[in-house]
């Protein structure tokens, strides 16, 4: 819970920094840190609190980007679900696997974003420029995903250590477990 909350705050700060960087960097070179955090949380933390944090990050992204409230949140929840599902059947602990997963999900995220936007009335623009931008962003996600995963893992292990003394430790009762 604390880890999810800490990562949510981290994600918020990352989004704010991203917004600042977007003023001087081309859109293709602005990595989607929130999405990477969602993927990393799904891989490392799992559970309801991480899912809630992902949705909350999505809502925050909607507020900050001006998208319809819930659009990013929905995609983040779906990304969390897809990552969790993939994590059950695939070995995603290696950096290469994390990078591949992040790249694929970034591509899907971009496509779904424009698809949902078009369903909500915006013009669907899928051209070469859009494709190039998406591919660049996916490549950037591939590079950054292992780092973000490592960061999330570090935060998670730190919070686990802090939480550990407060957890109830089962005392040996001398009875055999049933």
């Amino acid at each position: 819970m604390i880890a999810a909350l800490a990562l949510f705050v981290l994600g918020l700060l990352a989004m704010v920094a991203e917004g600042a960087a977007a003023s001087f960097l081309p859109a293709a070179f602005c990595p989607d840190f929130a999405l990477l955090l969602v993927i990393a949380m799904a891989l490392d933390l799992g559970g309801g609190s991480a899912l809630l944090a992902s949705a909350a990050l999505g809502y925050a992204a909607d507020v900050l980007s001006g998208a319809p409230l819930g659009q990013h949140a929905l995609l983040h929840v779906l990304a969390f679900g897809a990552t969790s599902a993939a994590n059950r059947s695939l070995e995603l602990r290696t950096p290469l696997a994390q990078a591949t997963l992040a790249g694929v999900l970034t591509l899907l995220n971009g496509l779904l974003l424009s698809l949902i936007a078009s369903l909500l009335g915006a013009a669907l623009v899928v051209d070469l420029r859009f494709a190039l931008q998406l591919i660049l962003q996916a490549a950037l996600s591939c590079v950054l995903a292992p780092l973000v995963c490592a960061l999330v893992e570090a935060v998670a292990s730190r919070t686990r250590e802090e939480e550990a003394p407060r957890r109830s430790v089962p005392l040996p009762s001398g009875r055999r477990p049933i």
């Binding site: 799992g46 559970g47 309801g48 899912l51 809630l52 949705a55 999505g58 809502y59 319809p68 409230l69 819930g70 659009q71 949140a73 929905l74 929840v77 779906l78 969390f80 679900g81 969790s84 949902i116 909500l120 009335g121």
Partner: peptide
Amino acid sequence: IRVPLLFVALVGLTATTMLADR
């Protein structure tokens, strides 16, 4: 199944808020 349930609930909630917002 609390996590899958939460997942479904969140999908529903986000989709609803999105449509409502739209």
